[in-house]
């Protein structure tokens, strides 16, 4: 007698949550937050419904590129411990489903953002999706140890798109927010690569830790952090900065620089002795670092909107 309940096709049927996991919800939450800050920091107001719809479609576009990334990277996701439980390697979703979902949501998000906001914002969203799914996932990630550096741009575009939704154009302030995320990404991911030590090696992804070694990665973390500190503190003196942002940036950047310095000082013997405690702490701090910087930009934008902002200016400018 055939037991139909045990046929492979009926063993597991993907649920809504499995498809949602394809969209990388944690990355989406960062995209929503930074795009929202980009939109609210702009000097032009947006109708709440238009703003809500725009952020939703930016988030869906980002999620769609995440699904395309998971479709393409299913082979290495199955090897890396950190990604083994993702919907495709765990067998909950078929690769073809992820591809279809990614393409369909990308098209829908770009068209709808064009209708809700403007064509420039839609064009930038399309560029971001292609940059992440094609340029980063399909080419850079497996080709060069600078994958994180260049690929970080994909995650840095959302505040620019948010700004364009409000203003319909580019500006220096939008690119400063872009640069903040762009420069933050390498130290953030390299710290992760240091303590997730065997994952990238096993998968054959040319992370800096694999191609140039761990001491070189530690030096790179410090170098990028120094550049990031200059940029992050300097942003306080732009149109999106102010006293609140400056105070936040000074504290966070001092801590971040200290963390990067400690990472640079250590070697693998020290790191293994305490199970990469310093690297893990730096990684955790990097999450707060970005969130609080953008939170401060949001506060400054709100203060300006209420007319109680005191802009910073350097005496010699």
């Amino acid at each position: 007698m055939t037991d139909i309940t045990n046929t492979p096709a009926m063993e597991y049927e993907a649920q809504l949550g499995d498809y949602f996991a394809l969209l990388k919800p944690r990355v989406m939450s960062l995209v929503v937050f930074t795009a929202l800050v980009g939109m609210l920091a702009a000097p032009v107001g947006v109708h709440p419904v238009v703003g809500f719809a725009s952020i939703l479609f930016i988030a869906i576009g980002a999620g769609a590129s995440g699904a395309l990334n998971m479709w393409w990277d299913a082979d290495i996701d199955a090897i890396m411990r950190r990604t083994q439980s993702r919907p495709i390697p765990s067998g909950r979703v078929q690769p073809g489903e992820a591809l279809a979902l990614g393409v369909a949501l990308s098209g829908m998000a770009v068209v709808m953002l064009g209708l809700a906001a403007n064509l420039l914002a839609a064009g930038m969203l399309l560029f971001t999706i292609l940059f992440y799914a094609v340029f980063y996932s399909m080419w850079l990630k497996r080709a060069t140890p600078q994958n994180i550096v260049i690929g970080g741009a994909a995650g840095a575009f959302p505040p620019v798109i948010g700004w364009i939704v409000a203003t319909g154009s580019f500006s220096v302030e939008a690119w400063l927010m872009f640069a903040l995320i762009f420069m933050w990404t390498p130290p953030h991911f390299w710290a992760l690569a240091l303590f997730m030590r065997s994952d990238y090696d096993d998968a054959g992804v040319p992370m800096l830790t694999v191609t140039h070694g761990r001491p070189a990665t530690r030096r790179h973390i410090l170098a990028y952090t120094v550049l990031l500190v200059v940029l992050a503190v300097g942003t306080a003196f732009s149109a999106i900065g102010g006293w609140v942002y400056l105070a936040t940036a000074l504290v966070l950047n001092a801590l971040f620089l200290l963390g990067a310095y400690r990472i640079w000082q250590r070697d693998e013997v020290d790191a293994e002795a305490d199970n990469y405690a310093v690297e893990r702490k730096f990684f955790r701090l990097s999450l707060y670092y970005l969130f609080l910087h953008f939170g401060a930009i949001l506060i400054e934008g709100s203060l300006r909107a209420w007319g109680i902002s005191a802009p910073l200016s350097l005496g010699w400018f």
Partner: peptide, 11 residues
């Protein structure tokens, strides 16, 4: 009512 119907309904 098979279990699969319940799961599909949710989806």
């Amino acid at each position: 009512e098979h279990e699969i119907h319940t799961r599909r309904r949710g989806r």
